[in-house]
Design a protein around this nucleic acid. Sequence first.
DNA 1: TGAAAGATTGCAGATCCTGAAATTTCTTCC
DNA 2: GGAAGAAATTTCAGGATCTGCAATCTTTCA
Lengths: 200, 200
Amino acid sequence: MTTVDSNEELGRRDRKKLETRAALERAALTLVAERGLAGVTVEDIAEAVDVSSRTFFNYFPSKEDALIGRNRMVGAELKERLAGVPSGVPALDALRLVLREQAVQVQDQREWWMLRLKVLEQNPSLLPHLISGGVETELLLTGLIAERVGDDGYAHLVTAVSLAAFRATMMRWSSGDGVPKLVVLLDEAFARLADGLSTP
Amino acid sequence: MTTVDSNEELGRRDRKKLETRAALERAALTLVAERGLAGVTVEDIAEAVDVSSRTFFNYFPSKEDALIGRNRMVGAELKERLAGVPSGVPALDALRLVLREQAVQVQDQREWWMLRLKVLEQNPSLLPHLISGGVETELLLTGLIAERVGDDGYAHLVTAVSLAAFRATMMRWSSGDGVPKLVVLLDEAFARLADGLSTP
DNA sequence: TGAAAGATTGCAGATCCTGAAATTTCTTCC
DNA sequence: GGAAGAAATTTCAGGATCTGCAATCTTTCA
């Protein structure tokens, strides 16, 4: 299991901050995987990382958020990615390309995501929080797409649908051994979308 | 604003139970609409209905659940509806028909849904809870669809996508004055889905 | 080295939510 | 009508979550 350390050009302070955050996420995830959501308190997590529980709340607004972690794609990043797609490309394809990059990132952290999804399965009450991360993403994406196409209703629809396809694909991916590449599955899903979801 | 009282052949006890639940939902919704989610405690809600706050938790597992309320379509009902659709009908159309009926129900309680959606807009942290209610629905529907078509992956995809379309449509509907009929908007959305979401 | 900025901590306190036992209300049956 | 039983409500105690605030410690940088 590899930890993601994107410490480039950062002072010691910020590096420690990143490390603390990552350590908290790691501790939260592993502890909950072992004992279940209710069996782990914020104090447990904080103690495992050797910080005060107050500090935990400086990093995450809730226990659940530590588990879901940094799944939300950052706004700036999304914007940049979408900007990289020529404006002639249809919205659905543009979304597919953006989500492909996301899929690649998920694959790079395969183990962590598998653990996360396993924890999600075992603690369905977490689902809302996972989705909540997706909600802001959806709002943002919808806005960007709406700029591309004129139609606002269409932007809402195509974005919602694309993200739903992404989510469904991730579930499918995780339920297998993660052997078929996520990117491949994603392309399949989008091909079906473009095909009008005709019966297989 | 009409209250929904489907008290047919029910003893006084169960009638009172239904009424209490409805009253709690009503109080929660109106209070939060006035003061915002953080400005309303469970005790406030319970007091408005004149029950103990413990009783509140006998009805709802959390404050949020009272606000989202009984939006989840009951499993049996869904099953029945879907059974009413001939097995020859493609999955996407079957889902459209089932969701149309749901849309009709929503329209029948237009005022309440508008208030609910307004509260949702003003308190985005509720959105996950709304969606999460849909999650069990999605699981159930997916199972039923999987039985119809053989392909499991396709069932996941088409269900997730259809529900996403439904959700997006409800948002669009509520952001307007609710003037265009929800059912009409829904048909539009599904037409676009069947069309492969080509650019408008 | 000596501020200044930032991160961590302890503490108080409101709120959320749960279990268990006591109490009240409703139903049923005689 | 009234007693027995079932079900709902309440009270109470208590653990856990989360926030604001002020104090303390650490890093940065001039």
